[in-house]
Nucleic acid binder design. Structure first.
Lengths: 217, 217
DNA sequence: TAGATTGTTAATCGATTAACAATC
DNA sequence: TAGATTGTTAATCGATTAACAATC
């Protein structure tokens, strides 16, 4: 039990969004910001924002607002971004290329410690200054660089095996872009990003909107 | 007020996952499935699954389970997947390439009606059988093909302008892969997928786990 | 009938929101 | 002091879960 108690799951996700907005403001030379202004920029309402920030402790000034730099720093610390975590990326197809080339990685507190692909023809390839390695090297890289986060960008068929190898190597958090449900031990965290699922959610709302229109007309 | 009342937001997201699992089972020739088995395959508990399915109406058989084919069909209908919606994709960088090449699109009820990029050098390029178009063509394509969903895969700087053009053209749902918060009219739906946010959430949990370990040791 | 599994209830938990006292 | 804005409360809402009656 140290400081900063039990930050709710939903709040954590939004803190990451506030962090980006604050970084932009910081770069723009903005020194201070009100909950109202920050909430607008982040696309939430100000009550929710203040509630979220309250989990970080009392950090604003009544009648004034928040110091952008201080708030940014505080959220970074809370999220553990200041730690500069190492990640490995497995699967260097189209998506893997995109992720490897993603500029936001470094600036957001992450470092790609290794790129891996099962295809021997891909091994050795240079992507954005990083060399693609074979799966056999994974254990060594994960250990040497203390990697705790793995990103899977393989086809669905390969995802579970890759996942198993990551876990065996010592990775305890996995971001899964493959359209497959992964089975992992209890102590491993998985987040799934699925294009089709996102589209289907949108599609559902589209339909609802259309139905609403039909009723109204 | 027709059938199938007020499906909760959280349920909709999971239905899309069940749908994928069911499709796989269907291909595998599985005829019937229990809530327990389907829940395991989808990574949720069976109580939640049954609760979710109950919003679609009573569709299983007590003592037996669900007919895979019937359930799949029912969820498809609910999500509006059977409509085969047209989407446009804007921004043909690394990520745009990956999305354009994503095989799951067609099979999951979506059709790419157009690829767009602001860079004149990219216009005319062929990607997976689709021709990249200039932004000037967007209005015409959206209208002609009745596109209601747009996917933004541009850099952050361009995202808002692209969004405005999509909305002006008549798109009412947007899937945003650019690391930018979009401002849209009330009747437009936006879902944001942000790699850095996903990683930061994982990073937060990593930290929490590490703290827990420290306490235990 | 006996065994299995659904669909639903009710209790619990967590997240959102408006409102406002505290305080700069 | 007057105006502004935070931090917190309490009420509301929505989601999860275990348990079990209904029923195949």
């Amino acid at each position: 039990m140290s400081e900063g108690r039990a930050v709710p799951e939903a709040t954590v996700a939004r803190l990451a969004v506030y962090l980006r907005v604050l970084s932009t403001m910081c770069d723009g030379g903005v020194l201070t910001v009100s909950s109202e202004a920050l909430a607008n920029a982040a696309g939430v309402n100000s009550a929710k924002l203040r509630k979220d920030l309250s989990y970080l402790g009392s950090i604003g000034t009544r009648g004034v607002g928040y110091l952008v730099e201080v708030l940014r720093e505080r959220i970074s610390t809370c999220l553990g971004v200041s730690e500069h975590r190492a990640v490995v990326l497995v699967g260097i197809g189209n998506l893997g290329h995109a992720l490897a080339g993603y500029g936001g990685f470094r600036s957001r507190g992450f470092r790609i410690a290794g790129l891996f692909d099962a295809d021997p023809n891909r091994v050795g390839e240079d992507i954005c200054g990083l060399r693609v390695r074979g799966m056999a090297d994974m254990q060594a890289v994960v250990t040497r660089e203390s990697v705790s986060i793995g990103v899977i960008a393989t086809p669905a068929e390969a995802a579970q095996e890759v996942c198993d190898r990551l876990v065996a190597a010592g990775v305890t958090s996995i971001l899964n872009f493959a359209p497959a449900v992964l089975v992992v031990p209890d102590n491993v965290d998985v987040r799934k990003v699925d294009l089709a699922v996102e589209l289907q959610i949108l599609s559902f709302h589209e339909q609802r909107k259309a139905a609403g229109l039909t009723v109204v007309l």
